[in-house]
Amino acid sequence: MTDPKAMNLRFPDPEQRAAIAAAAKQEGVSMQEYILSAAYTRATAVEQRFLEGFRESMARSGAVFTAEPSSIDATPEERAAELEARAGAEKQGRGRAA
């Protein structure tokens, strides 16, 4: 019976298998460990490229939103009036509860 945890290392190309076996031997690891390590390295490289692109996109988007204030953004006067109204409402609410 075979070990269910073992990786199936069948290669259709004997030259490819020999190249991987030689590289694994040079690294001093099993073929399975060498293949898993290579797969992990490749996957993390893809992830890093994605994250770099995402950061660049976020930076461009942030710059655009900073450069063009929205028509729905409150002016300083509107913000002050809103804070004053909120403070007044809180005072009225406390007075009724007492």
Rank of each mutant, 00 (worst) to 15 (best):
M1L: 11
T2D: 11
D3Y: 08
D3T: 08
P4S: 05
P4C: 04
P4D: 06
A6I: 08
A6W: 08
M7P: 00
N8Q: 14
L9S: 09
L9Q: 12
L9R: 08
R10N: 12
F11T: 03
P12S: 10
P12C: 00
D13A: 04
P14L: 02
Q16K: 06
R17P: 00
A18D: 08
A18F: 02
A18R: 02
A18Q: 05
A19I: 04
A19L: 12
I20T: 03
I20V: 10
A24C: 02
Q26V: 01
Q26K: 13
Q26F: 06
E27L: 03
G28C: 03
V29D: 07
S30P: 02
S30E: 02
S30Y: 01
S30K: 01
M31C: 11
M31L: 14
E33K: 07
Y34S: 06
Y34D: 08
I35N: 03
I35S: 02
S37T: 11
A39L: 09
A39H: 04
Y40H: 07
R42H: 04
R42I: 00
A43R: 04
A43E: 12
A43T: 04
A45L: 13
V46C: 03
Q48N: 13
R49Q: 09
E52I: 09
E52W: 00
G53M: 06
F54A: 07
F54S: 03
R55L: 03
R55P: 00
M58D: 09
M58K: 06
A59M: 04
V64L: 13
V64P: 01
F65V: 09
T66H: 04
T66E: 09
A67G: 01
E68Q: 15
E68P: 07
E68N: 15
S70Q: 01
S70E: 03
I72D: 14
D73A: 11
A74S: 11
T75E: 02
P76G: 08
E78M: 05
R79Q: 14
R79L: 15
A80G: 03
A81D: 13
E82R: 06
L83P: 00
E84Y: 09
E84H: 11
E84Q: 14
A85N: 13
R86I: 13
R86D: 10
R86K: 14
G88R: 14
A89Q: 13
A89L: 13
E90W: 15
E90I: 15
K91A: 15
K91I: 14
K91L: 15
G93K: 12
R94V: 04
G95H: 09
G95E: 15
R96K: 14
R96H: 11
A97I: 12
A97D: 11
A98I: 04
A98E: 11
A98F: 06
A98T: 13
